[in-house]
């Protein structure tokens, strides 16, 4: 017995210009892809890559030292200026800080991300995401100024150390040459702590995502085959999490390389690349040198990613 039906096998075409246009695009999959890709191509091609090329061209100009005018002639002179001891120090200082922040962020993020990926379920996972993302919802400037107060000589940290009768420990740390200082808020250590705090979420999220994709059975298999927990970590978990760590480090590393606010508020008076760019293009009016400084992080990141690839960091992707 078949149910009686008056339904047609093919429905009538849809009316209305939008519906007809959509139906037409659906019938032409290549057109669909083209329309999807068009805006992003325009954006990337003109606004993004175009601006980058303009910047690169600027860095090959130089400045006339008498008139202060930009000389629009191709030269490596500006890049030569980068190698002056004062400027080279700025670059090395910034790269060292970015590297330290990245390593510390990776070490701090890993256990947090591991917990979230392996053990947190349901509402605990939601809580984890809120906990990690919450600091990103408030103004970056407010956070950095808050840290300045926390780390200041009259700040809460000094007070806590004093109450715990640990002032000697804080003084001991501050008396370490180079990274120490008068107080945490005017030392490299303070700059480091603030960078670590504000960029940490950018490390946790990708590491968590990469750990989430490691099946639990792989760790069981390693253990089953005789690997101690340390060996399982070194031979299985870490290599599989590495793409996530690299992704996170791209954020922490490049954000630190380019930042000019944190070291200005918390730290000593020595410049970082971001501050150098700020002064060169602002007060000094040396756009070519500012551009050359800006190229440094791009080159450093390029070398970093190339090295990571060489070492097989993306093999598990």
């Amino acid at each position: 017995m078949r149910p009686a039906t008056s339904q047609p096998a093919i429905f009538a075409p849809r009316s209305g210009p939008l519906a007809r246009a959509v139906d037409w695009v659906i019938r032409h999959p290549r057109m669909f892809v083209f329309l999807m890709v068009l805006p992003i191509t325009l954006w990337l091609g003109i606004v993004y890559i175009g601006a980058l090329i303009a910047l690169l061209i600027q860095s090959f100009f130089s400045i006339d030292e008498f008139s202060g005018m930009v000389v629009r002639e191709f030269t490596f002179k500006t890049y030569g200026e980068l190698l002056r001891p004062y400027n080279l120090d700025i670059i090395l200082r910034t790269v060292a800080m970015a590297a330290a922040v990245t390593v510390a962020a990776a070490m701090l993020a890993f256990p947090i991300a591991y917990f979230a990926a392996r053990y947190a379920k349901g509402k605990w996972k939601a809580l984890f995401y809120i906990g990690v993302m919450l600091p990103l919802w408030s103004s970056y400037l407010v956070k950095v100024y808050a840290w300045k107060l926390v780390l200041a000589k009259e700040g809460i940290l000094t007070w806590v150390f004093a109450k715990l009768h640990l002032t000697w420990a804080l003084d001991g740390v501050l008396s370490i040459p180079v990274i120490g200082g008068n107080s945490l808020s005017v030392s490299y250590m303070g700059t480091f702590l603030v960078f670590l705090y504000i960029w940490l979420p950018y490390m946790i999220i990708p590491v968590q995502a990469s750990l989430e994709r490691v099946p639990g059975a792989l760790l069981e298999a390693a253990s089953d085959l005789g690997a101690t927990p340390r060996q399982s970590f070194r031979m299985v978990l870490f290599p599989l999490a590495l793409p996530g760590i690299i992704a996170g480090s791209i954020f922490t590393f490049s954000l630190t390389l380019g930042d000019y606010i944190v070291p200005q508020i918390v730290g000593n008076s020595r410049l970082f690349i971001g501050q150098a760019v700020y002064t060169q293009q602002g007060t000094a009016g040396n756009i070519p040198l500012a551009a050359a400084f800006t190229v440094v992080p791009i080159v450093v990141m390029g070398i970093y990613l190339w090295g990571a690839r060489k070492m097989g960091a993306f093999d598990a992707l």
Partner: peptide
């Protein structure tokens, strides 16, 4: 005691030889 897992649980970042040799490598 060694296990053959339901979905094999082969290590995706290693080739076949390294997968098989894993137990000896950790020893």
């Amino acid at each position: 005691v060694n296990t053959v897992f339901q979905n094999y649980a082969l290590f995706p970042h290693m080739n076949v030889l390294d997968n098989v040799a894993f137990g000896l490598r950790v020893k």
